[in-house]
Amino acid sequence: MKTSLGAKTLASPTPTWVVCAYDAAGKPNGATIAWGGICCSKPPCLAISLRAATYTHGCITASKAFTVNVPRQDQAVIADYFGMASGRDTDKFAAAGVSAGKSDLVSAPYLQEFPLVFECALTHVVELGLHTQFVGEIKDVKADPEILTDGKIDMEKLGTVLYSPATRQYFGLGPLLGAGFSIGNAYVK
């Protein structure tokens, strides 16, 4: 028998992403989010959710663009910091010692030091309650060559960071379990 935990946001793990956008003055800003994921394959889209009270929420609303920046495990401290400080009164990039790059296809900055970046144009805004969901069409994916194997993202080389809403802790990616649409063949008759 299972134990009821109630209606809570305990789906685990979630990605640890830093979402970046320009503010009204053109200053790069970013915030760490855990509410996000792929939401459509054609066109390729990401959905992220932020509280309206956050500075980044206003930046995305105004600029109609954002980037999703995926840290390596050794960058978890930077990602955590971007979720703690407010861009209203802090230049998070300078404080964390990271650089803002300029996206080629959307009007949004990205973290140059992070190995994987999704450039997104805002397509939908959905008010959900405490959070607003922003859907962005992925216009480009930029990856450091070091995380690629045969032109594809190598999850072991990326060493992505996962977050547990239940415990408010960061984790690393575990070992490979098998190939998708393959390991379940044991049940196919």
Rank of each mutant, 00 (worst) to 15 (best):
E146W: 10
A65V: 00
E127S: 15
V117H: 15
T54P: 06
T14P: 06
K8A: 15
F66E: 04
S86P: 07
T32M: 08
L116A: 00
P109Q: 04
A76C: 11
T32G: 07
T14A: 07
L122D: 03
L162P: 00
T160H: 00
T56R: 06
S63G: 14
A186F: 08
Y187D: 10
V77N: 14
G174E: 06
C39R: 05
S182I: 02
G159D: 05
G184V: 00
G97A: 10
S4I: 12
V135N: 00
R168C: 13
Y110S: 10
P44N: 06
G172K: 08
L128E: 05
K142P: 01
P44D: 03
G58K: 15
S86T: 15
A34C: 11
I183F: 09
L158C: 01
E127G: 15
T167R: 14
C120I: 05
A143H: 09
Y163Q: 04
A11D: 10
A79V: 00
K189M: 07
P71G: 02
P115S: 03
D140R: 15
Q169T: 08
E156S: 09
V135P: 03
G159Q: 02
A96D: 05
P43T: 02
R168V: 11
N69H: 08
K64R: 15
K102G: 05
D80V: 07
C59E: 03
N29W: 10
K142T: 08
A121E: 02
Y110P: 02
V141H: 03
H124A: 11
R88W: 13
V141T: 08
A76Y: 12
V68M: 09
F171M: 09
R51G: 13
T16Y: 05
T67P: 02
T149H: 06
S86V: 11
I147V: 15
A31L: 14
V188Q: 11
H131G: 04
S49L: 03
V77C: 12
T32C: 11
Y170N: 00
G180L: 14
S99K: 15
L128M: 11
P109F: 11
